[in-house]
Design a protein around this nucleic acid. Structure first.
Lengths: 100, 100
DNA sequence: TTGGTATATCGGGAAAAGTCGATATATATT
DNA sequence: AATATATATCGACTTTTCCCGATATACCAA
C-alpha cells in the first residue's frame, strides 16, 4: 500500500470521524441492532446516519478506508460491518515514526 | 492546526520525498553552498533542482509543509532555508497514536 | 418468484489540489 | 540607482476529490 494513499484516506474530516467513532462502537452507535457488533463492527447504514452524508458517499468513504487498511469489512447477510483495523493503524504508526 | 491539513500536506509524493531528503541534508544535497546548512536547512533552489518541478511549485509545497508544522523556514539574505521540524513531526506521532 | 432492504457502483457537477509560466518582492552587488 | 539572484505570489489550466442521485447487485422473507 502506497503511503500517499494512506494519507489521502486520512485527509477528510468525515473519514477521520468514522475512524474515531469506531474506537467505541457501543458509545457512538447505541442503536446498533447486531448483538455481536463489538466483534464484527458497525454496519454502513448506522455510520451513514451518524455522518449525515449520502449512502453512496459513506459507502465510498468506507472502501477508501478499507483500501488504506485502516478498517476491515465483514459481510453478514445483507449487512456489511466495518471495524477499525488496529493492525493497519499500528503499521501507520510505524511508517510515520520510521519512514517519515 | 487542523489534522486534515496535516494529512493533506502528506498526501503528495514529492512532499513526502522532501521531508525525507531533509532528514540527511549532507547526503541528499551535496552541492549545498551554505556552510551552516546542517543547522539552518536547505534552500529552496536546491530542493527544487532535486525534485525536478518548477520553482513556483516547490515554493508552494514548502509553504504547505510549513503550515502543517512539518518544516520550519529561516530567511538568510536572499535565501530561505527549510529544515524538518522534528517537534512538529513528534506532535504528528502523538496525534496518530492518541487521536486517530 | 416477487418484493423489500442493505450496500455497491456509476455518472456527473462543483470544489480543491497539482502544476506551470509570468510577474512581484526582497535582498545583494556594483 | 541599476542590475542580478532567490523566493513568493498570481492567474490559468488540468486532474483529482467531494458528494450527490440514480441504478445495479446481493441477500432475505413471504
Amino acid at each position: 500500500m502506497d503511503q500517499v494513499e494512506i494519507f489521502k484516506a486520512l485527509s477528510n474530516k468525515t473519514r477521520l470521524q468514522i475512524l474515531n467513532w469506531l474506537k467505541e462502537p457501543a458509545v457512538n452507535f447505541p442503536e446498533q441492532l447486531n448483538p455481536d457488533f463489538e466483534n464484527t463492527g458497525v454496519c454502513v447504514g448506522q455510520i451513514q446516519m451518524k455522518a449525515g452524508l449520502s449512502q453512496s458517499t459513506i459507502s465510498e468513504y468506507l472502501s477508501i478506508l478499507q483500501r488504506a487498511n485502516l478498517v476491515t469489512a465483514t459481510r453478514v447477510g445483507q449487512w456489511t460491518y466495518y471495524k477499525r483495523s488496529e493492525e493497519g493503524i499500528k503499521m501507520l504508526n510505524k511508517i510515520i515514526s520510521t519512514e517519515l
